[in-house]
């Protein structure tokens, strides 16, 4: 591997984004090349700083999932369950792409029976 080829790959190695065989070939070159060693040290430091800085960027607002869910799986707005082991009732209200859905089910001795779907 030449110094030019090594320097193309060094940032990806520092980013932990270089395929293993190429990483091994790169290190083989770097061990015998003082200039590329300096490049690698600099790239590793830079990589550490970049990862830390990107990780500090904010994430999406908490409500984003609800918007996505409403257009895909349906967002659960309310889920209520009452009852005991012998018998119980659950009621769920969900926002879906086409509006709202309300489902209810009755459980009796461990078996669940849908009783309501609007």
């Amino acid at each position: 591997m030449t110094c030019d080829e090594a320097r193309e790959r060094i940032p990806f190695y520092a980013a932990r984004a270089l395929p293993k065989p190429e990483g091994a070939a790169l290190l083989e070159h770097v061990v015998g090349c003082e200039l590329c060693q300096g490049e690698l040290v600099e790239a590793m430091r830079l990589g550490h700083e970049l990862r830390a800085a990107f990780a500090r960027l904010p994430g999406p607002p908490a409500g984003t999932w609800l918007s996505v869910a409403a257009r895909t799986v349906g967002a659960s707005l309310l889920a209520v369950g009452v009852g005991a082991e012998i018998a119980g009732l659950t009621l769920a209200v969900e926002a879906t792409k086409s509006g709202f859905s309300v489902t209810g089910s009755l459980s009796l001795l461990g078996r669940e029976v849908p009783v309501l779907r609007i």
Binding site: P11, F12, A14, A15, R16, A17, L18, P19, G47, L50, R51, F54, A55
Partner: peptide, 15 residues
């Protein structure tokens, strides 16, 4: 490229 490599960890062929 910097984001995809350093933060997302994508190899250059995937980038």
């Amino acid at each position: 490229v910097v984001f995809l490599a350093f933060y997302a960890g994508l190899p250059y062929e995937e980038i």
